[in-house]
Each structure stands twice: as C-alpha cells, then as structure tokens.
C-alpha cells in the first residue's frame, strides 16, 4: 500500500490534482489532520480556502490563526447549504491562483444533512474529480466518522485517496465519477397534492405570477421571494427553450420547505452544467442552472427516459 501526504510546502509545484478524504473522530484528529494541512499549505505559499461547517471553522481559525491573509475561511453551512453550488465556489477560488497551486479544505457533509442533501453532496464530491482533473490543486475533504456508514462508504468511492491524520492510501473502492452520479440519481419521492401547471411560452408570465402568489400564501419570506421567482423563471424558461417548448411546473410544500419542480423533454448532456460561474455577458447563455443553484437551498436533477426533472427547494426559514 502506498502512503501519501498532502502536498508539502518544500516540493516544486506539483501539476497534478489531489483529492483526499480525511476521516476524523475527535477534535484532536481534526486539528492534526486538517489544521496541520492548512498551516503547512499556507506556510508553503499556497493560497488556502477553508470551507467547513461553522463549529469546525471556529476550531481551525483558533488553531491556524487569522493573521495569514492567504487563508480564506468560509462557513460551509451557508456557502454550501445547497451542495450544488460548492463546486462553483471551489473553482472560482482555484481560478484566482493558477500559478500558486491553491489548496482547499471542503467539508460538504456534516451530521444532520438530509438524505437528499447527502446524495447531492456525494454527487458534488464525484464531480470534483471531473472538474479539477489535471489541475494543480489539492482539495482535502474531512469526513466525521459519526456520519452513517453508507455516507462514509461513498467517500471511499468519490476520493482517489483516503486516510486519517497519520497517513493516506489509495482508495481501492474509488469509482468513475459518472457511475457515482448515476447511483445518486435515485427516484424522487412523489408529492401528495401538488399544484400542477402546464405551460408553453405564452404562459410563462402567468406561471411566474401564479408561482409567486402561491409561495407568498405558503409562507415564503419576502427576502426569499425574489430567489423563488428567479429560480422558477429560469427553470420554466429552460423548458420552453431547450425542453421541447413546454413543460409542467408542480408546486408543493413540506413542513419546512417549498418545492418547485419542472418537468420537460430536455436532456442533460454535461454532468458539470451549472457548476462553474458563467460569464453573464456571454452570448452562449449557460446562466440558468448556475443561478438555480445559487438561489435555492437544494436542487435535484434527474434524467428519466421521458426527459428532465429539475426540483428546487427553498426553506421556509
């Protein structure tokens, strides 16, 4: 078995991509594994992004210190609340330092994530391997061993290298990212009694109005109302443009979430669609899915033989 340590400071710039998973149990583990990584990378002149859940963030800040301007701390509970927007954040960070081999700590799954969030976060972990393939970047992903066994098992499939503070090894269970994504495509649970709206191009304005009024009545806060409208607008507009000229919008609420789902005859050919911040002025578009990820708390996309399903969640908090 080969052992690895994450990129060391003294080495020449390593041109390859590293994506290890670090399993930790205690705070001490965390500091030995993650804290040491951040300190070493920063000391080696590499810009570091630390995107971990709030309580861990605090731990690392205290251990690493905040004086180093090349370490950026982000609370993953906010920035990565929707797992579908994390990859864009990581790519934007790495894009800023093409010559300095940036390092990232990304902890997208924590105890308390819902099953649907974990599935999308697992998909995100798999997509990291596609998005960063061949780029000089290290992304260390800490996993709390208190997470369910099946979640930890997926980490072995999404990380080419796995380990603990004492060392890393190749993951024999590492799987092709596309395979992992397909495995994440679990059938979506059917809602009990959704509002159903069929639409074509001429109905789009009315559909926006209806979805807006429905969300207001369902209790969506005014500061999320705009997010809701923009997301519904992009999803329904995509159906008309790319999904066969028409679609079906279904709206329903759960105890704490509003859900808008759009079904059409579209296809999704690029697993990485919406995972990189687009140039809004580009004539080639590509803004819709990225915006949905930024605006929503969770986005689930499925591609059954009938076409495309986009399910967008906004929390009622």
């Amino acid at each position: 078995m080969t052992t690895h340590t994450p990129e060391s400071a003294e080495n020449r710039i390593d041109p390859s991509f590293h994506h290890p998973a670090l399993f930790y149990t205690t705070e001490e583990d965390y500091l030995r594994g993650v804290g040491a990584f951040v300190r070493t990378e920063a000391a080696g002149g590499h810009p570091v992004l630390v995107a971990v859940p709030g309580p861990r963030l605090q731990l690392l800040r205290e251990a690493v210190g905040t004086g180093d301007e090349d370490v950026t701390f982000v609370d993953m509970r906010q920035a990565g609340r929707n797992p579908g927007r994390i990859l864009s954040m990581l790519q934007s960070f790495a894009d800023r330092y093409p010559d300095r081999r940036p390092s990232i700590v990304g902890e997208p799954i924590w105890v308390g994530r819902t099953a649907a969030e974990v599935r999308e976060a697992t998909r995100h972990e798999a997509l990291i391997n596609l998005a960063f393939d061949g780029r000089p970047v290290t992304i260390l992903c800490p996993y709390d061993t208190a997470l369910p066994e099946r979640v930890l098992a997926e980490a072995h499939r999404t990380h080419p290298v796995v380990g603990a503070p004492d060392g890393y090894a190749h993951s024999p269970r590492y799987a092709d990212p596309h395979t992992v994504c397909r495995d994440c495509d679990r059938p979506l649970e059917e809602p009990a009694d959704p509002l159903v709206l069929h639409f074509t191009e001429q109905d789009l304005a009315e559909v926006r109005d209806t979805a807006g009024h429905w969300a207001q009545k369902a209790g969506l806060s005014s500061n999320r109302h705009t997010d809701w409208l923009l997301a519904v607008n992009e999803a329904t507009g995509n159906s008309v443009r790319h999904g066969g000229g028409q679609g079906t919008l279904r709206l329903w609420r759960t105890a704490d979430t509003l859900i808008a789902e759009v079904r059409d005859r579209g296809r999704l050919t690029d697993a990485l669609v919406g995972r990189r911040r687009p140039d809004p002025l580009s004539p080639f578009g590509g803004r819709g899915v990225w915006m949905m990820h930024q605006l929503c708390d969770l986005v689930e996309m499925r591609t059954p033989p009938s076409g495309l399903i986009v399910r967008m969640h906004l929390a009622l908090d």
């Binding site: 789009l204 304005a205 926006r208 109005d209 607008n233 507009g237």
Partner: peptide, 8 residues
C-alpha cells in the same frame, strides 16, 4: 412595465 421573461 409588467414582467420580463423569455416570452417577452
């Protein structure tokens, strides 16, 4: 005035 989307 009104609402601006793909349809408009």
């Amino acid at each position: 005035s009104g609402s601006a989307g793909y349809e408009s």
